[in-house]
Amino acid sequence: MSKKIAFKLRQWHKWLSLAIGGQVLLWLASGVYMVVVDLDFIHGDHLVTNMTEIIEADDEPAVTFAEIVSEYPDATSITLANWVGRPVYRVTSDEGLKLVDAGSGVVLSPIQESDAIAVARFHYTRDNEVRSATLLEDKADAPSEIQSRPLPLWRIDFDDPGSTAFYVSPSDGSLVTRRHTYWRLFDFAWMLHIMDYEERADVNNPLLRIAAGLGLLLSLVGMCLLFFSFRRRGQIAS
């Protein structure tokens, strides 16, 4: 009896492996990449600096909160922060974000190419040259690596080995995110891992569910087979 089961199991293992074995290998290969390469490195922590600048609290800014409130009556939140070495207000309203110089009250946004490059340089840890600066306005032209981040964005490309790209928001002048080759590979591995080839975000997609079910079945059948594969000698006839 047991060998009949073993025979059936082996057939199942064989055909299941044909159905899902390729994906299992992709899961393993993409998984290996994701665990082997350090996540902080993937995030590009080594590429950025000056991420927690302080504001000079002793000197009250020339333009006060009260003045900003009366200047922008629709504002729903106002933040005083350091921007490339000078104090600024980030003013949020239902019209979006504005960057206001805290010294003069001048509206700095939307920031221009030279300012965007300055922001990128301010945060970039290396000396490599900026290769190009592009204002991304249209979703259709934007690379998928910005994911769901709202446009417009300045894309600043550096001439470095990791093809680093910094994304700077024109409306509040902040460094939104950074990308490099290893992040892009990670993102590709992630896509292979969750089998969402379009958005690379949906972990509940039906394809993944079916594939994971088959993969589980394959590995469970395989485990049962171990019992037979390691048995030295059984009964002659069942």
Binding site: E53, I55, F65, S77, I78
Partner: peptide, 21 residues
């Protein structure tokens, strides 16, 4: 009108101040 200025803590650096509801 007008809002008071924030009272800032002593002995620590401030990163940012947000006026919010």
């Amino acid at each position: 009108d007008p809002v008071v200025m924030p009272t800032l803590p002593q002995g620590t650096d401030v990163r940012q101040i947000t006026l919010q509801p």
